[in-house]
Amino acid sequence: MSGICARRVVAVTGAGRGLGRAHAHAFAAAGARVVVNDLGVGLDGTPAAGGPARQVADEIRAAGGEAVAHAGDIATTAGAASLVATALEAYGRIDTLVNNAGFLRDRMLVNLGEDDWDAVLRVHLKGHFLPMKHAAAHWRAEAKEGRAPAARIVNTSSGAGLLGSLGQANYSAAKAGIVALTLVAAAELARYGVQVNAVAPAARTRMTQHTFAASMAAPESGFDAMAPQNVSPLVVWLGSAASEGVSGRVFEAEGGRITVMEGWRAGPTADRAARRTPQEAGETARALLERAARPGPVYGA
């Protein structure tokens, strides 16, 4: 099969619906062999009937592509290890990992339960860490055997992780953590031929269907700016060998817009070889803030 990802093996987590499903189909259309992972839970992470991973794998095969389903919990060591093992058993290799699985349990901070906090950080942050760990261990072993891979990891953050979002303290914290995890992984894994980037998408999925209505399609062109399929081309490129040299970056993707995000970097600074009093520290901080760029507003504020 021809395409930008021809002969590559790509594992996509949370690929049974929404963005993950769109990514899986897009990779298959680009020639990749796809491992479709989805645990098949409800919007809040509770067990749900049906097997969305198998359904998407069947759709890809029906369209002439190659795919296998994986229904393991990637936020467990066993589930993450079996995701990599499934790719190796089915196709003999793994080239790209797309971490996308997640769900929501939105509450205002004072109403946010400990279980809601733990569950969201588990699926988003731990669910990124463990598949990365096991895929990276495989690629490190390959590199040490002289088979340096052109491996790719694409993580999924969010505007909520970059700016914050009212009612989503748990989700925002997890998505911000994914950005930091991406930067560390990019630095640590470069020696093994692994590139790691993150995408902060805005699209209409079951998690955002009330935020992004279908009516947002442009009436003149019929272009549905919030369709999840608009995000997938960037993800496919980042997951391909064509993205050589791009690592440790965060992109926002929405409709036809792609933005390179520029994160924390040193702004105005004042230094002196003496300890300040609290009053002096406050005066210095206020003077620096006058020269600093203002942060973007928190979503929903």
Rank of each mutant, 00 (worst) to 15 (best):
R105G: 03
R107I: 04
M108Y: 12
M108V: 10
L112E: 03
D116A: 14
W117S: 03
W117T: 06
D118R: 14
A119R: 14
V120K: 05
R122V: 09
R122I: 04
V123F: 02
V123C: 08
H124W: 10
H124S: 10
L125G: 09
L125P: 07
L130P: 00
L130H: 00
P131T: 05
P131S: 09
K133Q: 15
A136N: 13
A137N: 11
R140K: 12
E142C: 13
E142D: 07
G146V: 12
R147T: 08
A148M: 13
A150W: 08
V154M: 03
N155R: 02
T156M: 13
S158Y: 13
S158P: 00
S158H: 07
L162S: 10
S165R: 15
S165G: 09
G167C: 01
Q168Y: 00
A169V: 04
Y171C: 04
S172C: 09
A173T: 14
A174K: 01
A174P: 00
A176W: 02
A176N: 06
A176H: 07
A176R: 05
A180W: 00
L181F: 02
A190V: 09
R191E: 15
R191N: 07
Y192C: 06
Y192L: 08
G193V: 02
G193F: 04
V194L: 11
A200L: 03
